[in-house]
Amino acid sequence: MTLFELLGLGGKGWGAFLLLATATTLAVTATALAIGAVAGAAIAAAKLSGSVPLRLIGHVYTTVFRGVPELLIIYLIYFGGSSGLTAVGRWLGYDGFLGLPSFAAGALAVGIISGAYQAEVFRGAFHAIPRGELEAAMAIGMPRRLRFRRIIVPQVLRFAIPGLGNVWQLSLKDSALVSVTGLVELMRASQIASGSTRQYFLFYIVGGALYLILTSLSDRVFNTAERRANRSMSASTIGGA
């Protein structure tokens, strides 16, 4: 088979297979980022709170999930989740083995890891809000919730964009490890294609190139978002508007 046939979109080509897997990689990463945003916001809130036990929980979470190999965490969620599910099934009267779907397990595992990094991003962003702006909100009589919604959240999101860009890149690469659960994302697809054609070098290069396209495109997206969000901050637009 020629190179063109191997990578073709139709017939015996692996092109469509790889592109579909690329979409799966994006879907896993996006889901993980969303899970991580929720976890990260909660952990950041815990670490910023006045309560000692909450701060300790936050600290343990970020230390463990940033310090333990990602692969180990994927095993924990995939195998641990499946035995948990099986136990629940048994309790409900079903005796067989219940596996956690690999997409869910992968997105959850990468999401939990991403949450640890996002928590640090959110915490840094919160500290970047000028204290005086929070005081001005208090002084005008804003209740706590309103202050959170109108002053804190918009500013945290703005300051967090570059950090979230880094976390996205990290999660995109971590998602390759989800291949161990059998989910056919880009990494697993490259393995399958290279294994069945014996063209290891070719398909790992193609897989790697697709990852490079994903990372550089997303880099561009985050840069644009950062520029947009910071339009109100730069003095360069004086008189230009």
Binding site: P130, G132, E133, E135, A136, A137, M138, A139, I140, G141, M142, P143, I151, P154, Q155, R158, S232, M233
Partner: peptide, 21 residues
């Protein structure tokens, strides 16, 4: 909060919310 809404406060450092016009 109610009392604060009845007292205007002007700060040394202005403290305008930087994300709003």
């Amino acid at each position: 909060d109610h009392i604060r809404s009845e007292l205007g406060m002007v700060f040394q450092g202005f403290n305008l919310w930087s994300h709003m016009t």
